[in-house]
Amino acid sequence: MLKTENLSYSYNQKDWISFPDIHCEADTSHLILGQSGTGKTTFLHLIGGLLQSKKGKVIVKGTDITSLKGQALDRFRGDNIGIVFQQAHFINAISVEENLMIAQRLAGKPIDKSGIKDILGILNIEHKATANPKHLSQGEKQRVVIARALINKPAVILADEPTSALDDKNCAEVVGLLERTAKDVDAALVIVTHDNRLMDYFPNQIRLS
């Protein structure tokens, strides 16, 4: 599902950060650990196609996304990669439901209202469908973010510090939801974090240094 080969990146073309090769099958979860400054976010963005490197390969579902350009890359990302960010951001002018619709639309998929209803139901926030995301609690926001990452049934789900803003109870809940829903859609889950609480949940761990 997700594979990297000899991936490295440089912001100034002099100092190169090298990343370990990873290989994640569908239905598996990986934890990428590292202290601040070890390039966790850079790694995640490279895998997610938000950043492109001239060195190395990122292969998602058989496609080397480092070779994709422009609109093709955007489309591929929208279609195959779901990303959960540390901070829960939304398009604030529209409702939770509409945020999910626009995610479907931008990935070039037809709008599927019952799919949206299902996923909100699984995450137990169905009742907030028509609410403005601004008015949700932190835990609710994180769930909507997960819903948005899952809505297009991506092959890979990337999560960047998904629990750092959450207390222990919410942390456990969010991790559980991420893992379960990723399995539901047969996606490979990759979590980038420095949150040691998560180490107990995921046996597959890769440490950046």
Binding site: G70, G78, I83, H89, F90, I102, R148
Partner: peptide, 13 residues
């Protein structure tokens, strides 16, 4: 952030 998010979700430039 919103606009960047849209790009992540598949919107082209």
């Amino acid at each position: 952030y919103e606009l960047a998010l849209m790009r992540v979700m598949g919107a082209g430039q």
